[in-house]
Design a protein around this nucleic acid. Structure first.
Lengths: 329, 329
DNA sequence: GCAAAAATGTTAAACGTTTATCTTTTTTAG
DNA sequence: CTAAAAAAGATAAACGTTTAACATTTTTGC
């Protein structure tokens, strides 16, 4: 690998001049600058980030830790993150945890070791977040907040999204609403359920506990749950899965039972489903503002990196996108 | 940030002993080891990768450069890459180029600067590949090969995939086959078209040049092209888009024209479409072996990193997945 | 042609590790 | 209890940069 010394020698200048050109270009004459640039080009020189970091304590790298890059929501969110950061010359390290706390803690330690300038994390476990705090890694939580942990975050108002969606269903005449949720540990899960519960309460509709299913945000479990639900005598009129993946499970189950949406059963999804643009009927869903969620969190991160401390605690508003997967009753 | 010195002091051992524990654990007694580990835990110590790299010349990092993480094909491929590498304790840096040669060259320089142990790249431009060669970055091309460049690669036999698909269509009676392709620069594009052309030739069917559309792998262009095609008096009986994104465009066009698949028009896609698991009819498509493509390229990369040089030149076989989007004529 | 300003050079320390060599201390086996 | 082996320590160099302090050279403006 060619070093700054090689460049200096070949350009017949001192190492310090080369370094100055790299870090403070204004103070070197354009003649020398050109000469050095030319040599750099010839030798294919790129300064070693590692050596640089040691002195400057900056990596220009931001880590993104998330459960699943394949998940539609995280995927499109990531695209905005990537776009924004690449325009500002920050590098991204992407870590996929698969909702595995062990994988997550491994990654968290790794990025600590890498001394990234900051981390954006949609955590699976609280332990990872506590580790980040202890080890003084700069970070912003995304989507999943720990209320008792007093950290920076950007998330969606999951409560409102779910409340509004439920209200929409109720106004169309639905009372037997089935919920496919997680196990109640994840923040969005809790909030979404609370939103549902309170909307039901407001309209004085009793919640049938048999219609609340824990599917752990898993497609297959949603599929089985749906089959169970649809075989009941007292079956629900609508199913409300708390993420896109579970909605896929619901749709598959409906297809397998040769039923149709919304004639036989209505569906309302939290988040878009993959392939939503061509799937018919269009699935009514709560849409989180991925675009601004991505831009804002990255902007906040970059601000934190330059201005040091910053206070970022934001809930953004989701929007109910009306399709035609919900029937009026 | 706590350093190895802090650990040594607190554990009352020498820096060298701590380093030995980290790099050659067998030669330190378990009593000392435990003591040191305990202190590391307490102080949240993680060695600085940068400092380490300077001496050891290893980053344990592999860069993945690809055009679009949102593209179904690259996305699922990436998941396998990620899984395989994380199990083997390699870190991944993900770079999204958006098919922009400038963004790509920026990323290529970046990873050079980061001194990653290797790169896996589905290149957009030849310049990036030439840069990697010049700067002696270890790399394997993925999907997009440059025949004149004599590099390592793992790709699919695009020719065969397309040939077989075309033959399938012909045997079902199709003669007026419309092709939605790119502009003919990308390797897969060229090969896929050659496969189509030769299959047609074998069955002595003349290719109507009006049915060959350059849509640049773009959804909107595929949509417009499809509308044009379907309004012709001498319209095709089947449309064969060269990737999943263009297939989405085709499907949207068909939906907008209120036609149905395969009654009014048949479709055969190269690659899966997003949401393929719930979309009906099931789209007949050429499936690349994403799983093995991912594992194999990562395995090859890791071998290259440890054994130094390696020769990797592989074309894997795609498979035709029969759905019901192609009508017998 | 001269003084001031700008550009470049010289030297050296620092960043946090690893690693080699050599020395000293501790543990183990008989 | 002793000799050998194992473990730990001490010292120092190296990795590729940046940066500060100061010295020297070159350019600029008048």
């Amino acid at each position: 690998m060619t070093t700054i010394l090689d460049v200096a020698k070949k350009a017949k200048v001192s190492v310090v001049t080369v370094s100055r050109l790299l870090n403070n270009p204004d103070i070197v004459s354009s003649r020398t600058a050109n000469k050095i640039f030319q040599v750099m080009e010839q030798l294919n020189y790129q300064p070693s980030q590692a050596a640089r970091y040691l002195v400057q304590k900056k990596t220009n790298t931001i880590a993104v830790i998330m459960p699943d890059i394949k998940n539609t929501f995280f995927n499109s969110w990531f695209r905005f993150i990537e776009e924004y950061s690449s325009e500002r010359d920050f590098n991204l390290v992407l870590c996929n945890t698969d909702e595995d706390p062990l994988k997550e803690i491994k990654y968290v330690k790794l990025i600590h070791s890498q001394r990234v300038d900051g981390a954006i994390i949609a955590p699976t476990s609280k332990a990872s977040v506590e580790y980040l705090i202890k080890s003084k890694v700069r970070f912003i939580l995304f989507d999943r907040v720990f209320k008792d942990l007093n950290t920076n975050f950007i998330s969606t108002d999951h409560y409102k999204g779910s409340y509004d969606a439920t209200e929409y269903l109720i106004r169309l005449g639905h009372k037997k609403i089935a919920i496919l949720k997680g196990n109640g540990t994840l923040y969005p899960d809790v909030e979404r359920f609370a939103g549902f519960r309170n909307a039901m309460k407001k309209y004085n509709i009793k919640i049938d506990p048999d219609l609340i299913m824990n599917c752990e945000f898993n497609e297959d479990k949603a599929l089985s749950a749906t089959k169970l639900l649809l075989q009941r005598s007292d079956k629900p009129t609508v199913i409300f899965p708390f993420n896109g993946l579970m909605s896929i499970g619901v749709i598959k189950a409906v297809q397998q039972l040769k039923l149709s949406i919304p004639e036989d059963i209505s569906i309302l999804s939290f988040d878009e489903i993959p392939g939503s643009d061509i799937f018919r009927p269009e699935i009514t869903h709560v849409m989180q503002p991925v675009n601004t969620l991505g831009k804002d969190i990255m902007a906040a991160m970059i601000r934190m990196i330059s201005n040091s401390s910053q206070h970022v605690r934001v809930f953004q508003n989701p929007e109910l996108i009306i399709g035609n997967s919900v029937k009026k009753i």
